[in-house]
Amino acid sequence: MIAMLQRLGHATLENIRGVGAASIMLFQALVGKPQPLKMFPLLVRQLYVVGVQSMLIILISGLFIGMVLGLQGYTILVDFGAEQALGPMVALSLLRELGPVVTALLFAGRAGSALTAEIGLMRATEQLSSLEMMAVDPLRRVVAPRFWAGVITMPLLAFMFSAVGIYGGFMVGVQWLGVDDGAFWSVMQSNVEWQQDIINGFIKSLVFAVVVTWIALYKGYTAAPTSPGISAATTQTVVYSSLAVLGLDFVLTAIMFG
């Protein structure tokens, strides 16, 4: 019993220590004299790796999720004779919830795990130590551009996801199942608010972007420099990011729409 409590206490302290260390890491990476000339090429490279390479999976997933929403929504709404509400249903589900959340989950799996593995491998092959010995701060050189790239790209990916998803819902609902074209868009427009839905969805995905990228970078930076260490860190990135995203989503939803 005492041993169990002690283990619980130990685990709690370890977690708090981890959060503290992660905060210090992020702080050191981002604070300091900005060097836009040096940063820009690095940032472009990371935007490519983190953003462009995640685009395809985001677009395809968005399209299919939108199509499924269209199909499921139609079968439910048609029973109430309310198939005109398909437009707002698809649009609101995507903009408020699925866009930010699914994008964040896919991003954690696609880009987050890659970031962790890459930085973990740089640690294992002593590239980070080597940077330090060359008087270059790896936090600012390696961590900072990746962080900004993640924070910039994820909301953009979420917009693409929602847009493609709504188009998928339109294809299934209107072109296949025969919901009226005009009603689909006009009812959607009268129910979707720029401020309430699109901006709030953007804020959500911005928060998720910070959290997921941060976890991925921290896990990579502190990974044990061995193959099991890196594989464990990669797994942890995906698990922790997913849990954090889903938990935060509830909190944010409660604040924004509650």
Partner: peptide, 15 residues
């Protein structure tokens, strides 16, 4: 592509 998505959301989806 992201800007196009945003414009689509702004003009076609939201009021």
């Amino acid at each position: 592509a992201a800007i196009a998505a945003l414009v689509f959301l702004g003009l076609q989806v939201a009021n």
